[in-house]
Design a protein around this nucleic acid. Sequence first.
DNA 1: TTATATTTTTAGATTTGTCTAAATTTTATT
DNA 2: AATAAAATTTAGACAAATCTAAAAATATAA
Lengths: 220, 220
Amino acid sequence: MSFTTSEENYIKCIYHLQQESGLVNTNSLAAEMQTRAASVTDMLKKLKTKKLLQYEKYKGFKLNEAGKKAALDVVRKHRLWEFFLVEKLQFDWDKVHSIAEELEHISSEELVQRLDNFLGNPSFDPHGDPIPDKNGIIPVINQQNLGDAPLNKIVTVSSVTNQSAEMLEMLKHYNIALGTQITVLRKFDFDGSLEIKVWKQKACIISEQVAKNVFVHYDQ
Amino acid sequence: MSFTTSEENYIKCIYHLQQESGLVNTNSLAAEMQTRAASVTDMLKKLKTKKLLQYEKYKGFKLNEAGKKAALDVVRKHRLWEFFLVEKLQFDWDKVHSIAEELEHISSEELVQRLDNFLGNPSFDPHGDPIPDKNGIIPVINQQNLGDAPLNKIVTVSSVTNQSAEMLEMLKHYNIALGTQITVLRKFDFDGSLEIKVWKQKACIISEQVAKNVFVHYDQ
DNA sequence: TTATATTTTTAGATTTGTCTAAATTTTATT
DNA sequence: AATAAAATTTAGACAAATCTAAAAATATAA
């Protein structure tokens, strides 16, 4: 089964939303897709006809197994291309998203497989997000939110969820990138801000907003 | 100015046709695009409105300077991606065309420029076709048809025009590829076939049909 | 040079993905 | 539970790119 660019964009978007909430509703998908609720309804009918969606009028919807596999194929391509753009073409990681949005719709399966090999079969993209394999298997990493990390223990940044230029600027300021080692020294309950020590730097304070988007892991 | 995928495909196709014939006519473009004459007429109006085309009803048409530049941008992208697919992803050269047909429509200019640098700013694609630079300048090569090459002089294969799987198979059989050195020993007027000697191999005979699609160059 | 054939264009329909506005269903509130 | 608010769907329209069938222009040939 093959899909149009528009179908793939909807499928991918539904996938991401249902990861958070289980069942997805029309308005939130419309907001995420920057379109109108009526357009979403039209597409839902189409995807249901193609047997990718569990959907009943007014009752919300989610991808079935076939839909999830289709979504993971797109996610895989997106993340592999992002990896390529950053690792091979030296793009800054905040510039690659929109280009990968186009590249993810190139259809050749052989292309994806060869790209994967060329890149050394990476498990995580430049934002730290896991890259599904060709069967849709997602590598797991034992990560948690920086705000939930234990105090006074060295943790490693494994993923950053907000990929805006503003967030990147912020992280550059703090010298935080994927792989950076951080120790959380203290958590302020007042505003959720954290006092942290970045490897080889003085202790500093980051806001709850920043912390929420940074994920870390530690060994054992 | 930016273009839809369909517009780009028409522009590129008109460019190739007018290289051969100067003025292009509706039916030949329809045949090349595998569509109907009526669809071509529709698109011609659109491209004329966008000031890319010299076109008068019933009188044929050709790209103006803006149209040619647009075409060369697409050709450039196509050939850079073909180079990438063959040199980096190890595709056989007869498999890359259809994938490059998709990749050529990715819009980011920065992507193309970085890809160009990553590939080492190649001048020719894997078929030996010249890759226009970002200003639309096409590298020239002093090449001629193998059938017109002087006898008993070592020449180098620079380009192969027929890119079908059948042709590739044929050339593999003769151990001919881009860069292969060949000496034409004799030309048979009866059927236009050539006796040639491929570097490090015994002399053999190739048909006029094969020879017609092979282009070569030699120094001075 | 008139008739015929070919080429090209127009007119109107179709599909995909989108939209607005109105109608319907569900949810929340008094 | 009745009513107001919010969410969702339907109905009908539109733009892009295509199509078929018919009309118009051009080219060819008797």
